[in-house]
């Protein structure tokens, strides 16, 4: 069994995939934890779909596709904010409008490019971790270093801001800057993860490992660390599944991560559906909450 897992690693493409899997597992869980605690999961989805046109345009003009994708990702958050603040349209609708428009433009552009070039839309949509080049590994490593360094240096400020934005602003923290910094981190993370999981499923790698950890621990830093471990295991497993069964890596990674989440959901010692301690006082508590709900409706 172990030999079967180690044997493929003699190939250099497998070594590159392994590095990407570890890096992506770490940064997605760390940055995704911020998305989850701010209830901004949908924003992660919006940014990831929005990077596609940037990627295509960069390819057309011969620029680095990572840079193009990053610019489009940040631009989408700017447009979403503009619509939200300058019109009566609410944030969720603004996200839906912007990301589908960007995504449609991206698909259109890539379909046009595809006719003359060896570029495969499916790789961007669903990921192809086994096909990453050395340059992509290097870019992902640089981005990961930046993301982790920023999160470590600004941990206490970002904790304060994401928990209590008003309190942080009243204490004199530059909350707009922190918010923009967080958007940049999210865009960077998505760009770095594209090759492994693709734009459609990167959301799962951002949210699922962190959410799984959230059911097991009680502090943000613990959530990030445990989430990173789960993310790494999921992406390495996905890589092997992709290798042995010739499947796209994105869905494989996401399915493993989702399986972990299901286990935590059912069996978490403190929050599990099947294992939650059901003492008398707790059921009393539940009953009281139900009653208070009924009272509000009346």
């Amino acid at each position: 069994m172990l030999e079967a897992l180690i044997e493929p690693l003699q190939y250099s493409f497998m070594q590159r995939s392994l590095v990407i899997a570890v890096l992506v597992g770490i940064i997605c869980a760390v940055v995704g934890s911020y998305l989850m605690v701010q209830r901004l999961a949908l924003l992660g989805d919006a940014i990831s779909h929005s990077v596609l046109p940037g990627l295509a345009i960069a390819f057309m003009i011969g620029a680095d596709i990572f840079v193009g994708a990053f610019i489009a990702g940040v631009l989408s958050t700017v447009v979403i904010t503009l619509i939200r603040t300058r019109s009566p349209i609410k944030e969720d609708a603004a996200m839906g409008i912007v990301f589908s428009a960007f995504f449609a433009l991206g698909i259109t552009l890539i379909t046009i490019i595809q006719k003359d070039n060896k570029i495969d839309l499916n790789h961007f949509l669903f990921g192809n971790i086994l096909g990453v080049t050395f340059d992509e590994v290097r870019n992902t490593a640089i981005i990961s270093a930046i993301v982790v360094t920023v999160v470590v240096l600004l941990y206490k400020e970002l904790l304060f801001y994401t928990f209590d934005p008003l309190g942080a602003q009243a204490a004199g923290l530059p909350v707009n800057l922190l918010n923009f910094g967080l958007m940049v981190l999210i865009a960077l993370t998505i760009v770095a993860s594209l090759t492994a999981v693709g734009v459609i499923l990167v959301l799962a790698l951002l949210i699922t490992p962190g959410a799984t950890a959230y059911l097991l621990v009680k502090r943000l830093n613990q959530m990030m660390i445990l989430g990173a471990v789960i993310g790494i295991v999921a992406s390495i497993s996905g890589m092997y599944i992709s290798y042995f069964f010739n499947l796209p890596s994105g869905p494989a990674i996401v399915l493993v991560a989702s399986a972990f989440f299901t286990l935590a959901l059912l069996f978490s010692p403190s929050q599990g559906i099947l294992t939650y301690p059901q003492s008398n006082s707790d059921s009393y508590h539940l009953w009281r909450e139900l009653k208070s709900l009924i009272r509000i409706k009346n």
Partner: peptide
């Protein structure tokens, strides 16, 4: 939010 009492007081 995943924070302890100590985390919140330290925010001050």
């Amino acid at each position: 939010y995943p924070a302890t009492v100590w985390d919140v007081v330290l925010m001050g």
